[in-house]
Design a protein around this nucleic acid. Sequence first.
DNA 1: GTATGCCCTGCCAGCGCTGTCAAAAAAGCA
DNA 2: TGCTTTTTTGACAGCGCTGGCAGGGCATAC
Lengths: 359, 359
Amino acid sequence: MDIKASSELKPGVNLPASGTVSTINDVARLAGVSIKTVSRVMNNEPNVRAETRVKVQEAANLLHYRPNLLARSLAGARSFLIGIFYDNPNPSYINAVQNGAIRRCRESSYHLLIEPQDAHSPDLERNIAGLLATIRLDGVILTPPLCDMAVVLHAVEAAGVPYVRISPFLNPGRSPIVRMDEARATYEMTQHLIAMGHRDIGFVLGHPEHGGTHLRYQGFTKALSEAGITPRPDWVKQGFFSYESGIEAGKSFFADGKPRPTAIFSSNDYMAFGIMGVAQQMGIRIPEDISICGFDDAPGSILIWPHVTTIRQPVEDIAYAAADILLAKAEVEDEDGTKRDTDRMLPFELIKRNSVGPV
Amino acid sequence: MDIKASSELKPGVNLPASGTVSTINDVARLAGVSIKTVSRVMNNEPNVRAETRVKVQEAANLLHYRPNLLARSLAGARSFLIGIFYDNPNPSYINAVQNGAIRRCRESSYHLLIEPQDAHSPDLERNIAGLLATIRLDGVILTPPLCDMAVVLHAVEAAGVPYVRISPFLNPGRSPIVRMDEARATYEMTQHLIAMGHRDIGFVLGHPEHGGTHLRYQGFTKALSEAGITPRPDWVKQGFFSYESGIEAGKSFFADGKPRPTAIFSSNDYMAFGIMGVAQQMGIRIPEDISICGFDDAPGSILIWPHVTTIRQPVEDIAYAAADILLAKAEVEDEDGTKRDTDRMLPFELIKRNSVGPV
DNA sequence: GTATGCCCTGCCAGCGCTGTCAAAAAAGCA
DNA sequence: TGCTTTTTTGACAGCGCTGGCAGGGCATAC
């Protein structure tokens, strides 16, 4: 076979049939160097002569060589795999997290293993420990609610696997964290309502065991008190982030004869959908009779009419940042950059649509 | 350390500190057998004396031994990894597919690698080929639209990796397939509309390049003609599966002065949402003035009011079945079961909610 | 008694690659 | 030029496990 490459590759070596997997050995032989040198080139290690590097790369291209991930993992210190653990019923959230993490993984030729877990399983800790013993992951991303569970943190720490938590509520400082300023988001949204002339504002709380719930309420009350408005306790309803609990809250707000607020801030979009459904059936117009806003920018918020004014979390970017922290571990830390990496806060976006109007 | 186990384990072997990973070697030493015997026990291979088996299992438990997946993969023929390729913007669909596949994977201690791909990338084939060369997957699941792309099939076949396609449109018989009877689903839904007294029924087509589009329309026309109804061509609108195209279709149906159908069958839920939004804004009541049904049972279909009558695809079960075909490969084929595995058809569910009513 | 076969077990090689270390080549220096 | 230092390269030993095989023990058959 005639090889036209510029450098002098070893002749007489068979080129691969289509679909054949070539090994580092094949490349070494073609390039006329040792396996180790090929390894160096493939890993971008220094101390390889430029000329040699080119020769090896040509051979690798010719053979369509791709290093075997398994073998690399076994021999080396890295597995080129990171995992993401979650127990979250919200597909669009999970999807965004996965996409963000994968985007970062691809930049470093890493792969993502998804590991949904049952947060209520008594075997949770054992499952995670077993998994981490079976596959030596280079890092793990933890999302709510797992990121706030002691057994989960313990299992991951015991395995000695680096991890990053997304939007955790408990144990700040225990690990690197990526999140969004939820309190500030509700604060600004509340200011927006006030700017539209609303002073009678109701609030629907999220699930009490979920960290975001408290932060979101904090921002709400802060904006209120800064505007000199005293919140009415009977206009703060307990919800659980579900559509159904939104319906309950809506019924409670719109019960006959009771005075009702001119705006309702729902701690997430699903509950807002529920409230809006109740309003619609009772002939209460949105936003003419009442303004309603949500949180999360769930996919449904532009499906429903009117479209819902809400807060968009940059979920994908958050996950990207989480993966970035994990994968950048080996890189040099710049003088003042160390701190930044342990707690990244990403910006939110207030999305004004049609469900909020002036008083 | 005092070992109380019933069988005579070798004394004097250090038990592991918490968080330590023990290897097959440790187990072999503790149990007083060779590495190979431990391997046999861990893989449930025959020809191990019951007594020996127990001894090994005790040692493994004591040491919290978990076989190293990477090493197993490298030495053996299997990687214990399957992959799923997709390019689908619908998070709830992807989530369901992932969950179904993972459920089956866990039954065989397999893991799932997710690989979103850009169907329009010119590098698609190269990306897939490279990926499959890097990680030797034991199987691959392909979802629409990738499962109908020649370059994708070619890349997977060239790598010699077994694959299963979910709901493909093209090339039946080229690989095992799992799907749902979409034509039958629209057929039955149409019959349902007819049973409610509707004879003037509009239809919104899906994206012309998507396989399901044609099948769904087939079922619709079949039911119509069986009922002696001639469909009006001007009541069949082209849509593209998007919310926006639903809005367009709705505007077209509800244009002033034109006669309109008493029911509209939308090829998916998102378009139905769009149609319903238009109706709502024009004061057309659902289902009193017009009935509307969709397809897919998208999460939004119970968020919107009225809730949408639709078809539920057992997406998770379909993915479970796809993974099952891949993982069951090594198992014996029963006398007549071979054929069954190459094309599994799962049942759909017609979900009657409030968006469809009698004429 | 010896031969035949089966069951159980262990030895050895090696999967494809990286880490370590030493040797060889090149470069720097007096 | 001859020496030291640095850069570049390769030999070798595994990573933890499985596949192939051979060997030992034991039961059955002749």
